[in-house]
């Protein structure tokens, strides 16, 4: 349509220039703040005078200093342990609850589901105060457990809600057919259902990843030992201590941002689908 007439085409292209211009300005505004901190991370302290200027030479050693001297390597390890545990366990448990809610019939099903919905709505603030005092009483504060277990508790609420939708969408005939073919419950679950809920599982895993990787409040309350800090906590506390070592702080911020950026570039679609789907979570 329309491509036979060059005049119409030219007008369409010209007409879309203002749109591109506005979009590009928006895009620059979204990206430049991150670029500025990345540039700062590569500078020497003497080069801070012009925020937009590139450094004479790239001071990659700022990253090395942040990693070792400012202990971002340690924080990275904490974040990795906590995030992998939460994402792995929460996905597994959500597959089980999603299967139960979406495929099985049992008494009290709706009441138990409602219970999970409460966890979907309430904010961390609603439970963190008593949780801190209880966990401290049993010496679980200042352990990874204090971050992993509550985060799983919150995640499975969303997971149950989310995976139920996918499991209940599996056609009855397909399940019956596999039974006729001689599959037992486990085989049906594993070979017939899991492949069908896989897209939902990926989206959910990406969501669990951002929630855990970015979490600040839980870590702030539960962790006081420096060696156990996660990346966001380490960054927030670090800036309090070295307030004037700007290039080091900037390198630290870049280290925290980089894994998310990498993940985002790889799984952009899942991120966008996931975050908009998880929007109703408190």
């Amino acid at each position: 349509m329309g491509f036979a007439n060059p005049a119409v085409n030219a007008r369409r292209i010209l007409g879309s220039i203002p749109t591109y211009l506005i979009l590009t300005i928006g895009l620059l505004l979204a990206v430049i703040p991150f670029l500025l901190i990345f540039i700062t991370a590569l500078k020497s302290p003497a080069e801070l005078g012009n925020a937009f200027a590139l450094p004479q030479q790239f001071h990659w050693e700022n990253f090395q200093r942040a990693w070792t001297q400012a202990r971002f390597g340690t924080y990275f390890k904490s974040s990795l342990i906590v995030t992998l545990s939460v994402v792995g366990i929460s996905c597994l448990l959500s597959l089980l609850t999603g299967y139960a809610f979406g495929q099985l019939r049992f008494p009290l099903k709706n009441s138990i589901f409602l219970l999970f919905l409460i966890g979907l709505m309430v904010p961390t603030e609603a439970y963190i105060i008593p949780l801190y005092y209880s966990l401290r009483a049993v010496h679980l504060t200042d352990t990874y457990w204090a971050l992993i277990l509550p985060q799983i508790g919150m995640s499975v609420c969303f997971g149950s809600f989310w995976m139920r939708g996918f499991f209940s969408g599996i056609p009855r005939d397909l399940v019956d057919a596999s039974r006729v073919d001689g599959c037992n419950d486990w085989q049906t679950f594993w070979h017939v259902m899991i492949p069908m809920v896989l897209p939902g599982l990926w989206t959910m895993a990406v969501l669990f990843f951002i929630w855990t990787w970015n979490d600040f409040l839980l870590a702030l309350v539960m962790i006081t030992r420096e060696g156990l800090r996660t990346l966001p906590l380490g960054l927030a506390m670090f800036q309090g201590r070295y307030t004037t070592d700007y290039t080091l702080t900037a390198a630290g911020a870049t280290i925290v941002a980089l894994p998310t950026l990498l993940f985002y570039v790889l799984f952009q679609r899942q991120f966008i689908r996931g975050v908009t789907a998880g929007a109703i979570k408190g």
């Binding site: 999970f116 409460i118 966890g119 439970y127 008593p130 949780l131 509550p150 799983i152 508790g153 499975v156």
Partner: peptide, 9 residues
Amino acid sequence: IYGIFVLFP
């Protein structure tokens, strides 16, 4: 896990 670490608190 949800009951102990979220709901009860």
